[in-house]
Design a protein around this nucleic acid. Structure first.
Lengths: 213, 213
DNA sequence: AGATTTATAGATCATTTGCTCAATAAGATT
DNA sequence: AATCTTATTGAGCAAATGATCTATAAATCT
């Protein structure tokens, strides 16, 4: 398949032995592998197991990260970075499109973003271990997405009063719970959550008398 | 500071030294301590730390449990046992009382049962680590509580179609998410979740045209 | 082609950790 | 009070684990 040396024509593609990579690239490769690894086994996963999975020496990890904790920090950064698209606040409050459409668009996109093995499990693991990053993320989500959402529903509400912040969290939690069932509990789930999401959103809007498509 | 010889008349109540307990009692004490301990630090908590917290030697733990895994099994058993009261299925399907009352009664009781530090965290930890017990519990919950609930709502529905099983899971998830925010993420939450629960239940019933009180 | 740089491997250290076992003493029995 | 039973301890083993350090070889430069 692959001819690497001048005289070797047989396959050797297994065990590349010692592949020398640009530090930037190797570092990223380690982080990517660590994300998948820690998502699977939790943050108490052993550096030797991670190294083996990467096809690399354990000592190499400590060439790129001084301590295991530092590696975990890099994992956090990698996973949490850019999870909340910056244009959602604007799109959610763009009253030129019906509220229902905005809500469905948001939760459709957001759910495909977060209903993923790595994100779900690392978010839950880091939450359990008390990572401050989790609280920061949730506060940010509340401030930047859910609170404005509350305002939009208040504005569009025609009957049945207006929601509280707890109501919004309830809507959100009911949707997120699908991902928890899927990736944390590994329980049977719908392949496509969008219909459940649509129905949940519609029930919510109905309760506050918001016009539906 | 501390006089240990025969002439001690002052308080020594700290450090009971070697307290000898009936095995049954000691075993239970260890399990209780282990529940609190593993809930706090996760199942990778060290047996030495647990022993220290119990004021007991680490080797003593292995007198009562052959392995750490066996201790963890005992923790599971202790925590999962009797979490689902056996009379709920009957009470939920007792059509002599209004459906809304039944639903509120269930979720009020159930939430006070599960919105507790130990349960929430051990359930999540064991879920993350892939414990079969979790899936069993959730399947049981679905079969014995949520599925019958679906039947009740179908029966009481006057308009707006009837719910699907996914709708029921959505109702359930939105409520459970309160406990997750409280004990896993440790994010600000209402002290009393009952009003949020009531509003969630009412929105749900409204969507299916169920008579409300 | 040879010299240079440095990413990587391999060996190893110091703790940690699950677990064992003989010695000890707390409480019951006589 | 002496004896007996056994719950508990303390020392310690073997394997695992995070981290260190020097030798090696892959790529680059001259």
């Amino acid at each position: 398949m692959d001819i690497n040396g001048p005289v070797e024509s047989t396959v050797i593609e297994e065990r590349p032995g010692r592949r020398r990579l640009p530090p930037q690239e190797r570092r990223q490769q380690i982080i990517d592998g660590a994300v998948a690894f820690f998502a699977e086994v939790g943050f108490d996963g052993k550096t030797r197991d991670l190294a083996k999975r990467l096809g690399v020496t354990q000592s190499l990890l400590f060439n790129y990260f001084a301590t295991k904790d530092e590696l975990i920090e890099a994992v956090y950064e990698q996973v949490y970075l850019n999870r909340l698209a910056p244009d959602w606040p604007d799109r959610l409050t763009d009253r030129s499109t019906p509220l229902r459409d905005r809500l469905l668009a948001f939760y459709t996109e957001y759910s495909t973003l977060i209903f993923q093995y790595e994100w779900m499990r690392i978010f839950m693991s880091s939450g359990l271990s008390g990572a401050e990053l989790n609280r920061r993320y949730l506060k940010h989500l509340g401030d930047v997405i859910l609170r404005p959402l509350l305002g939009e529903i208040e504005f569009a509400a025609r009957s049945g009063g207006t929601p509280t912040m707890e109501d919004i969290w309830n809507l959100h939690g009911g949707i997120v719970y699908i991902g928890i069932r899927q990736h944390i509990y590994r329980t049977p789930c719908p392949d496509d959550p969008s219909v459940a999401i649509t129905r949940a959103v519609d029930r919510f809007l109905l309760a506050f008398g918001v016009e539906q498509g």
